[in-house]
Structure formats: structure tokens, C-alpha cells
Amino acid sequence: MSVQQEIIIAGFGGQGILSAGRLIAYAGMLDNKNVSWLPSYGPEMRGGTANCHVIVSDEPVGSPILNKATSIIVMNGPSLDKFEGIVSPGGLVITDSSLVGKSPKRTDVDVSEIPASRIASEMGNATYASIILLGKLVAKTGVISKESFEEALKEVLPPKYHHLIPEEMKAFELGMNY
């Protein structure tokens, strides 16, 4: 039985939404999976909402556009409203509870509410919030391996940020174990 993970990551522009998606896709590729990453593009990427669709699959990826998702990570209220409904029953909803300000209404999905932005600020870098949430996603779904995630950080982050990778991995593990 083939497995296809269909993930939507959504929030405000500037929260690292698109990079978080790229990290998953890159790590998936390193794990020898078929992957696709599709960003929302256009006016909304200039300070408004941002989201990306990521597929990690054992089989070739068909449509890169998701009309349903196995997991969503949401980092603001509007994104929860927009995407909660398309999560498959039994799927996963991860929210940054320090920003979303409400809980999912669905009762047929697995919900993880993590105050990721608050934790990240306490760690001294607000951009780790999305990494914490990715940690939770990986712990719950096993979509990618931790080793590949660390490799992906090296590929996706510009070299000038590579010195932060140990901290990023700390955030990732914190999310995994939250």
C-alpha cells in the first residue's frame, strides 16, 4: 500500500511558511521519496497570507495542488478557518496556539496545539516557531527522517545562517517531544 503525505502549511508572510514547506520537500527527496512543493504566489506573498502545498509520496506525484490534506500546520487564525475543513478524517491539525487564538472545531482529526511562537521567542529567535511545528509533524507522521531534515537545513538555509543549525535542530527536537 503506497503512502502519500499531503501537507499544507499556512500563516502570514514572513513566518517562514514557504521555507518550512521546502524543508519537508527537500528532506523527503533525500529520503528517496517523490516530492512536490507548490507555493501560493502573487500579491498575497507580499505581507499577507502565505501557504504552500507539499506532497511526499512513495509514488510519482500527480497533481501538486491539494484539495484535501493529511496534515496541516497553521500559524494564524484565518489559515485555520481556511484549511481545517479539508483535512482528511483521522488527519493531523497542528496550530501555533500563541497566534491562532482558537481551537480547531473538528473532532475527527488529531489536534496538536503548541505555543510555538512563544517558545521560539523564549529561545531568542521567533523564526524557530515553524521549525518547532515541523518537529511535531515529523514526530506524528514520520513523513521524513530527522537526519534528512538536518541535511535539508544545510541545503535550504543560506550559508550565512548555517551556524544556527544546531539551534534549529534543538527547536525541531523540542517540537518532536512537545
Partner: peptide, 10 residues
Amino acid sequence: DGILGQMMEA
């Protein structure tokens, strides 16, 4: 189309 241009794949 915009999807192919914008999407990432291996």
C-alpha cells in the same frame, strides 16, 4: 502554467 513555473520538484 503558473503551477509548473512555481512548483518545486526533484
